[in-house]
Amino acid sequence: MTTLSAAAEPTIDERPRTTELLARAQSKFPLLQIAITVVAFLVGAFTLDGFASENSVKSLLILASLVGLAGIGQTLAILIGGVDMSVANFLVVGAVFVTQFTQLYGMSFTTALLLLVPFTAILGGFVGWVCHRFNVEPLVVTLAMGTFALGLMQIQTEGTIAGGAPGWLMALTSLRSTTFGLPFPPVIAIWAVVTVALAIFIHRTAVGRRMLAAGANGRAAGLSLIKVRRMWIVVFALSALFAGLAGVVLAAFSGTVNTSIGGPYLFQSLAAVIIGGTVFGGPGDYSRTVIGALMLTVITTVLIGHGLATSDQQILYGAVILIAMALYGRGRKMSDRV
């Protein structure tokens, strides 16, 4: 399609105004989201007793880290132009592996973890392969694979998914634990390390760059010597893997495991990615998801403090996703597609 918007010579437009400058800054960095997070935190600090206390901030960070960890795979899937609806069920898979399987098969925690990695990666990789090979919507394929994986867990455990996490594991997310003597639980440290590592992966490695290119324009990427199908396989394998590992942390946090343990995190993680400003096929970034997770957690915590019910919380997530999408996730006009 020869589109003239790119073809004709550009002419000098009027000088950029302040709003445009701000919009440009916003497109490079999630300023608005940070501002909202800060304002929401200040509102909480002034209206709720003990909201700004050390423990309260720590528990905020623990809650946000769970959303954030669940959102890793989602970020990658959305960056390559898909979506991962299997996050919830792979969270359960991860949790089941380290709790029930250790009891059921008498394996050690480490063995379970070592088995979890290839298990999730293979199922996820298959999703990526199917999506790219048969050109089908990741929405449907991930739904299917999530259901399938959950089914596998249910067969192993004969339907009763209910397990308890060992005490030492629960310390991972406990308010009172410390990390190498520092006064915060390890999960926060893990989240920080993962955030930095993913920033480096996405922006400072050749694979990360190729992944972004495959999401930005799959056809051009293929012609630019990028193995796009392999990228899809890797991304969805990583997505399932990270969801499984987040499930381990989730098991630590909630102490018990059941089939619906992952549900809320699917939508929260999706909301965090979208609110952060990552768009289907890019641009985007995991650090944006981190900001999105923090913003979402702070706002909900403040509102819950003011008596927000679970139902309202769901309505809030839905509304926030819609607003965020309407701000920067809109599709092309029909007239631009002819």
Partner: peptide, 12 residues
């Protein structure tokens, strides 16, 4: 041939 479809990574 198609710059937009086959070559450009538009947001990059």
């Amino acid at each position: 041939r198609e710059r937009r479809g086959e070559s450009l990574f538009e947001w990059m």
